[in-house]
């Protein structure tokens, strides 16, 4: 029951992030693209409490963002799914290690997702974007990640599991 409440809280927080992204604040294209807040948030949760961010929730959130932000439908969701599944597999490896390792793994996951996304877009000839913009977006997201981790810690009390408490949360999650 508590898990469901937490899941709903996380879903609402993600929607709030999306609403914030949708807020019109002038339409000038920025030279410094903003970080992918939703990716940061999802990754921070998945690394800490994978059971609170089940696969179908990742898919739902991804699809909603794809639709509302006028992206090719389903493609970024696939990338997001790949990245979060990759992170799920790496949870054991980074448990108990300093934050810097988690940061590296999440950065690698985001790079993979972004690279795959643009590779597919280029193959299907739907868009070509400047490499500089791509890199700036990547860097912005990597730099922003610790902020989202802090927020997740403070707001949702989701700290990384200690090895001794894994049994309690290890039940299958979908």
């Amino acid at each position: 029951m508590k898990k469901w409440l937490q899941r709903i809280a996380i879903a609402v927080a993600t929607l709030a992030l999306l609403a914030f992204a949708l807020t019109p604040t002038g339409q000038a294209p920025s030279r410094y693209p903003p970080p992918d807040a939703i990716f940061c948030f999802l990754a921070a949760i998945v690394v800490r409490r994978p059971t609170l961010m089940p696969t179908y929730m990742v898919v739902g959130i991804g699809l909603l963002c794809d639709i509302v932000l006028f992206r090719p439908i389903g493609l970024w969701t696939l990338a997001l799914l790949g990245a979060t599944e990759f992170l799920r597999g790496k949870i054991e490896n980074i448990r108990g290690l300093p934050f810097i390792f988690e940061w590296m793994v999440v950065s690698a996951a985001f790079l993979g997702a972004l690279a795959a996304y643009f590779a597919v877009l280029t193959i299907f000839l739907t868009q070509q974007s400047e490499l500089g913009l791509f890199l700036m977006h990547y860097l912005a997201t990597v730099i922003a990640y610790p902020v989202f981790v802090g927020a997740a810690n403070v707001v949702f009390r989701v700290r990384k599991l200690h090895p001794s408490e894994e049994g309690r949360h290890a039940e299958s999650h979908n």
Binding site: L75, S172, N174
Partner: peptide, 29 residues
Amino acid sequence: PTARGIVLALCVAVLVLLFAAWRFDNPRV
């Protein structure tokens, strides 16, 4: 295959289909 694996495969299949639909029948989507 676990239930989890099946759900994952299903999700991926649906997403690939959606993207294909978007790419090849763009106006309708």
